[in-house]
């Protein structure tokens, strides 16, 4: 392979862009983390001293115990329900040809193609009319709208990979559809289910718009509480907002790292053929 000056310059430029992106990103994260443990940080490279008291302050000021519990409940329910609704639907769509299949696929694609804020406003209006606005149930219902189609679309290729004769064998041996699901399909699909649900988990923790529009004082998740804290900054010490941001960051990062142990991120959208080498 020839290496001309142009191609070397090109490689260098690509790496420079990657480097620039990563340096700024890591700098951004590092400045939040540094600020959260700083005593006083004005006009210098590094703060005057380090302390952990902002974490305790943030915990009390923002009632983080309650907020985390709400987040845990909402995210847990969303993950569980989108798995229960999404995986069977993906099975039906992967295995059966039925008249309205294309319409169903379109119906599932729509919530992913329309920005959450667009359908979030009418959805919030309906939920408030139904008396569910501002409640935890409302937050869970609103978050299911993008996650269930997401699970279906991620699971369809996983299910198509499984040999249909496996299910036929299970049926021949007398398993009904429920038994076949529990004893045959779910164990074989476990990697895919885990991957899809972990991504739903990360997405739901970070889902701002829908939760923001639907939640009330008692049903704020961590990301919405963080937004309100930043929005109304000036009332509270900057460092305690940063401490809260770090807590938020850690909750999502833990799950992202777990998720990446199970999935190769590039397989989420398409199963590309790997180069043979």
């Amino acid at each position: 392979m020839q290496k001309s000056i142009m191609s070397r310059l090109w490689v260098f430029a690509v790496w420079a862009v990657i480097g620039l992106f990563l340096i700024n990103l890591l700098g951004l994260i590092a400045s939040v983390v540094t600020s959260s443990v700083a005593t006083r940080w004005l006009g210098t490279w590094l703060p005057a001293g380090f302390t952990t008291r902002w974490y305790f302050a943030a915990w009390d000021e923002f009632q983080l115990g309650d907020v985390l519990w709400v987040t845990f409940q909402a995210v847990g329910a969303v993950v569980l329900l989108s798995g229960l609704l999404g995986v069977p639907a993906a099975y039906a769509l992967a295995r059966r040809e039925f008249p309205a299949k294309r319409a169903v696929m379109l119906l599932l694609l729509l919530p992913l193609l329309v920005p959450p804020i667009t359908y979030g406003i009418p959805l919030a209006t309906v939920l408030y009319k139904a008396g569910l606005g501002g409640t935890l149930t409302g937050v869970i219902l609103a978050n299911l709208v993008p996650t269930v189609p997401f699970v279906v679309l991620v699971m369809i290729p996983f299910i198509e990979q499984i040999d249909p004769r496996t299910e036929a064998a299970a049926r021949v041996f007398g398993a009904n559809i429920f038994q076949m699901f529990v004893h045959v399909l779910v164990p074989m699909l476990m990697p895919g289910v885990l991957a899809a649900l972990l991504l739903v988990l990360v997405r739901t923790i970070g889902m701002f718009e829908l939760t923001f529009l639907v939640s009330g004082p008692g049903s704020q998740t961590l990301v919405v509480a963080l937004y309100y804290a930043v929005f109304a900054s000036g009332v509270r010490a900057v460092q305690s907002i940063d401490a809260m941001a770090v807590i938020y960051m850690v909750t999502t990062l833990v799950w992202l790292i777990v998720a990446l142990r199970f999935v190769n991120p590039t397989q989420i959208v398409g199963r590309g053929k790997r180069p043979a080498a």
């Binding site: 994260i29 990360v202 970070g206 907002i241 941001a245």
Partner: peptide
């Protein structure tokens, strides 16, 4: 990384 950080945290940082 930034996908998990979300828009709120990036804006804050």
């Amino acid at each position: 990384l930034p996908i998990t950080l979300g828009t709120v945290l990036v804006a804050e940082g």
